[in-house]
Amino acid sequence: MTPAPHPPRVLVLRALGLGDLLAGVPALRAIRRAFAGHRVVLALPPGLTEAALSTGAVDTVLPAEAPGRAVPSLGHWSGPPPDVAIDLHGNGPESRDALAALRPCRLLAHALPDSPPWRPEDHERDRWCAFLRAHGIPADPRDLRLPRPAAPSPAPGAVVVHPGAASGSRRWPGERFAAVVRCLRAAGHHVVLTGGPGEDALVRSVAERGGQPASGVLAGGLPFADLSALVAGASLVLSGDTGLAHLAVAHGTRSVTLFGPVSPRLWGPPPGPGHLALWKPGPPGDPHGRTPDARLLRIRTAEVAAACLTQLRRVRPGPGRTPAEAARAH
């Protein structure tokens, strides 16, 4: 019996973090539409599989990760070469060559002569959509919302405070987060603290200083389904420039995001009253440094508390609506 032909496949490389994945959703959706008859395979860290599948733009995942933002090996790709390979990882030869080594029938990458120039001043969502449009693939950077999670929120209507970040340069001091937590609790708001893997000590310290009970601490890195439901059902998300801020945007949940050293012009939320980006301009810094960036440290506690309370005053539930539903309606 003749085996069934292998379905055509598109391999997309974006083996980065949660925020990078969510910023790439408009480009992934454009690829899904342009190659409707293909199987879309996304190469990214295996811990992001559930998040990737939740976008509706990806059929399956090729586990691929490397330290930092390095390019992972794709040598474990199986079967025939990809019909199309698309580099959404970066603009260097390393990611281009990792895909080219699989001998795809068609390769799209910034590091090829027929691609548009890399513009470092472009927002991440805009950059990749412009890249695809230059190759004849319509893409809309506003197409970034995720479907409503099926799971219920573990803390409906809570203010979610996330003090962690992947690098120290993007981590606002824990004692300042604690001061904001105290302010929010004093104003009568239900606060929940979250942290990623390896951030338990930070979250516990913020909780203790902020007078937060253990019942309001969700440390240890929630599974994506629970984290997504938590953010979707929140009245507000307060965080630094990290994946949770992008998740709030993806669910239309109000947010206050503290930026530094990277400008919100490059990685921030779309314009609109639902998302406040706090940022102090200054000389460029290292987004992967170990110590808090000078621009980030210039954001004061009172400023953050005031921004959160302003956002929460805009959330006025009507009959039969939760605070989170009211927030998305404005």
Score class of each variant (00 low, 15 high):
T194R: 05
A130W: 03
R14K: 15
R321C: 09
A225Q: 09
R142D: 15
A201M: 04
V12I: 15
S255E: 00
D87I: 09
A34T: 05
L266P: 00
L218F: 12
P163L: 09
A179T: 09
G243D: 05
T55I: 10
T242V: 11
L99P: 06
G68C: 11
W267E: 01
A30Q: 02
P264C: 10
C308A: 13
R32P: 12
F177S: 02
W118D: 14
T301N: 04
R171G: 02
L144G: 02
R204C: 03
R9S: 10
G285Q: 13
S239V: 01
S95K: 04
V304E: 04
L144N: 00
H89K: 06
A327S: 12
R106M: 13
P319S: 06
G221I: 04
L74H: 08
P323Q: 09
A158C: 14
L146M: 15
L107K: 05
V304F: 11
A306E: 14
A201W: 09
A100P: 10
A165Q: 06
G320F: 01
G174V: 01
G320L: 06
A51D: 10
P323H: 05
A326H: 07
F177A: 02
L44Y: 03
P72Y: 07
L297T: 03
A225K: 07
L244W: 00
W128F: 15
P149E: 11
G47R: 15
A214I: 01
H38E: 08
P116C: 11
D59Q: 10
P82L: 07
T194E: 05
V61P: 08
H135K: 12
R185D: 06
R14E: 05
L296T: 01
R314C: 03
A186C: 04
M1P: 10
P223M: 12
L244C: 07
H135E: 12
R316C: 07
D226N: 04
G320M: 07
S205T: 13
R96M: 07
A30Y: 04
G282C: 13
G68Q: 11
P138K: 02
I86D: 01
A111G: 06
P213R: 12
G285H: 06
L62E: 07
V10H: 03
E121S: 13
T60M: 13
V84N: 04
L107F: 14
P82W: 03
L99A: 06
L222A: 15
G188L: 05
A111D: 15
E124S: 12
L74P: 02
E199T: 02
D140K: 06
R106V: 13
F131D: 02
M1K: 06
A15R: 01
G188I: 05
G37N: 12
V256L: 03
P117M: 06
T194D: 07
P8N: 08
L22M: 12
L144P: 00
L266S: 07
P149C: 14
D122R: 15
L28V: 11
R170H: 08
H76R: 15
S215P: 02
G174D: 03
R32A: 10
P138D: 08
A23R: 10
L309M: 11
R133M: 14
A43D: 02
V25T: 14
S169T: 06
A219I: 00
T253I: 01
L16N: 09
P72S: 07
S215W: 03
A302N: 13
P67W: 08
S73L: 14
L227E: 09
L193K: 04
D59Y: 13
P104K: 10
P269W: 00
P264N: 01
A66H: 11
E303I: 00
C105N: 14
